[in-house]
C-alpha cells in the first residue's frame, strides 16, 4: 500500500479485551479512501469488534483509532471530547446484521431522521433525498410502509438507504445478510454491488458469504483469534493462500 494520502481509517496497535479475554491483540492496519476491504475468518476472530470500534460502539482497551487522520478513540490517551468524536464519526456509516430500523417510523421516516436531526436538513429536502435513496435501493414504492410490514431483505435495503443518507466516506457492513432467508440475500448483495461500482466510498465488509467477500473487495484480510493471519488481493488469498490456517478455513467454509 502506498501511503501518499491520509488513510480513511487507521488502527494503531489496538488491543481489546473483556476481562482476561483478548478479542483483538495489537492490531494495526489501515484502509485507504475508496478502498474496499473484506474481513473474513471464523466466528470469534474479532472481525465484528473492529467494525464496532470504528463506530465507537466499543472502546479499545489500548491503542488508537483515527479517521482521516483525526482521533476517533484512544485506549491510552486522554478521554476525547464528545463533539470531536462526533466530528470524526460523521465520516462513517454502518449497516447492521439485525437491520436495527426504527420500528416507530416509516421507511422514509427512517431515512429522513438523521439528515434532519443531525445535519439540520429541511424536511422537504430530506424527503426528496430519502425518496431518491429509496428509489435507488428499489424501494421507492414502499416509502410509507413500516418496518414490520417489510420483508427482511427490504428492511436491510432501507437500512442501507438510511446509512447512505448521511453521505459517509466509509461504510461498515456487518454481516448484513446473516439474518436473512437465503432467497432474500441476492437482492441485498445486488444493491451493495451497485453502490460499489457507482460510488467512491471506502467499504469495510464482514461477511460469511465468501463469493461476496471476494467480488466486492480490493483487499481481503483473514483473521483468527484476534490477529491478522494473512492479507492480500482477493484472487491471491482465495486461490493461493500463504497460510495453512487460511487454507483450512477456506476449505471448511467451501465444504
Amino acid at each position: 500500500m502506498n501511503n501518499q494520502s491520509t488513510p480513511a481509517a487507521e488502527f494503531v496497535d489496538v488491543t481489546k479485551s473483556y476481562g482476561t479475554l483478548e478479542v483483538l491483540q495489537n492490531l494495526s492496519f489501515s484502509i485507504a479512501p475508496a478502498e474496499r476491504v473484506s474481513l473474513i475468518g471464523p466466528s470469534g476472530s474479532g472481525k465484528t469488534t473492529i467494525l464496532r470500534m470504528l463506530m465507537t460502539l466499543e472502546q479499545p482497551t489500548s491503542g488508537d483509532i483515527r479517521v482521516f487522520g483525526k482521533p476517533l478513540s484512544s485506549g491510552t490517551g486522554p478521554r476525547l471530547r464528545e463533539q470531536d468524536v462526533r466530528a470524526a464519526r460523521a465520516h462513517i456509516g454502518m449497516v447492521f446484521q439485525q437491520f436495527n430500523l426504527f420500528p416507530h417510523m416509516s421507511a422514509i421516516g427512517n431515512v429522513m431522521e438523521a439528515p434532519m436531526q443531525v445535519l439540520g436538513m429541511a424536511k422537504d429536502d430530506a424527503r426528496a433525498m430519502a425518496q431518491a435513496l429509496l428509489d435507488r435501493v428499489g424501494l421507492g414504492a414502499k416509502a410509507d410502509s413500516y418496518p414490520s410490514q417489510l420483508s427482511g431483505g427490504q428492511q436491510q435495503r432501507v437500512a442501507i438507504a438510511r446509512a447512505l443518507a448521511m453521505k459517509p466516506q466509509i461504510m461498515l457492513l456487518d454481516e448484513i445478510t446473516s439474518a436473512l432467508d437465503p432467497e432474500l440475500i441476492g437482492e441485498v448483495l445486488d444493491v451493495v454491488h451497485s453502490l460499489a461500482s457507482e460510488t467512491r466510498m471506502a467499504m469495510l465488509v464482514v461477511t460469511h458469504e465468501m463469493g461476496f467477500a471476494r467480488d466486492i473487495a480490493d483487499r481481503v484480510i483473514f483473521m483468527e483469534k484476534g490477529r491478522i493471519v494473512e492479507e492480500g488481493l482477493p484472487d491471491q488469498v482465495f486461490e493461493d493462500p500463504a497460510s495453512e490456517r487460511t487454507r483450512s478455513f477456506l476449505r471448511s467454509v467451501r465444504r
Partner: peptide
C-alpha cells in the same frame, strides 16, 4: 433493543 441505540450512534445522532 440495544440495536436501536447503536443505530442512532451509527447515524451520528447526539
Amino acid at each position: 433493543n440495544p440495536g436501536q441505540w447503536q443505530a442512532g450512534v451509527a447515524l451520528n445522532m447526539e
